[in-house]
Amino acid sequence: MQTRRQAYRQGAKDAFPSVIGLIPFGLIVGTASTAAGMDPWLALAMSIIVYAGASQLAAIGLMVQSAPLAIVLATVLVVNLRFVMYSASLAPFFRQLSTGRKWLLSYALTDHLFALVNARFTPDGCHKHVDAYYIGGAVPTWLMWNAMVAIGIFAGTLVPKQWSLDFAIPLVFLALVFPALTTRTHWITAGAALVAAFFTAGLPMKLGLITAAFVAVSIGTWLDYRQELEKRIAR
């Protein structure tokens, strides 16, 4: 990647498999918003403005039940907290860029882009043209995502309600959860989240998700901290 042009192209090339992988998820988010009775233009605006599938689905689920604004925003923040982690790990690559460019690149950040940049560059090594590489991957990702959501939104109007397409939302989350369960502590965290979600499902103002997530993250963090202490003592 000697020139910027080559970096753009390499980014697009590396992003290709994940861009194809966006097709079903984007279609589902589009159809699910229509299935929830969301205004099609609002749904498309959400896809462009928020640009984060899992949190879009979570927000739609709450908005259809007229949950208070603060609860929807808190839920979106919780679902998107992983971006804080990505942001911390990508920050060294973008140091030299202007503030405006930093915001623009931040807006386009996705799970896949984060993984791609981390696979090809190291903060200490040479990362010339890393922003060009990033944009090369970000542009097709953005175009594919929003095109698929748009198609889903308008295709969704053709699907009868009896098909229960809203069930696709928890199914997508199911497909996403297992790769996140890497250790025993993660499994315990997930189990705690299920139990907590069951008992908080009836909470007013749709507070259940945030409460359950907070309880489970606390349990996971505490177990992890204790394990590290034990390791330190054993040494």
Partner: peptide
């Protein structure tokens, strides 16, 4: 990134996704 935040962030996905799934499966429709 503060150490406690880094530790907590590791468990966000494992906590949030099941909490999203359960009510959509059990209590809808």
């Amino acid at each position: 990134v503060p150490a406690w935040l880094r530790r907590a962030l590791k468990f966000v996905a494992a906590a949030v996704l099941p909490a999203l799934i359960l009510p959509d499966v059990l209590f809808r429709d």
